[in-house]
């Protein structure tokens, strides 16, 4: 089995404690290969996930399960210049990047 991060899902438990993610529009900044993105989508969020690394975005798209595809959109992007209108997200997640 390859590298596994947080097999106990403590991260998910903590995320559940702090917000109700169902139906929320979420911007995830620094999504990397989409590990946390998938967890947020499973919690019911609609996730716009960005990362400056195009290789990681490609990998994230590739590993995204079909059943989550309608809830997730990956895009190359940077935290310092967000290409979204003002007031467009309920939650913004800095994912191991700040």
């Amino acid at each position: 089995m390859p590298l596994r991060i947080d097999p106990e899902q403590n991260e998910v438990q903590a995320l559940k404690q702090v917000a109700d993610w169902r139906g929320q529009r979420v911007l995830e900044i620094g999504c990397g290969d989409g590990r946390l993105t998938q967890r947020l989508a499973r919690l019911g969020a609609q996730v716009q996930a960005i990362d400056p690394n195009v290789t990681l975005i490609r990998a994230a798209r590739k590993r995204l399960p079909q059943r989550l595809a309608a809830r997730v959109h990956f895009q190359v992007g940077r935290a310092g210049r967000l290409e979204y209108p003002k007031e467009s997200f309920d939650l913004v997640v800095f994912s191991w990047v700040l």
């Binding site: 991260e11 995320l15 702090v18 917000a19 911007l27 946390l36 967000l82 979204y84 209108p85 003002k86 007031e87 467009s88 997200f89 309920d90 939650l91 913004v92 997640v93 800095f94 994912s95 191991w96 990047v97 700040l98």
Partner: peptide, 12 residues
Amino acid sequence: VLKPGGVLIDLR
């Protein structure tokens, strides 16, 4: 880009 009353999560 956050809506009024929106929440920022800083996870690291």
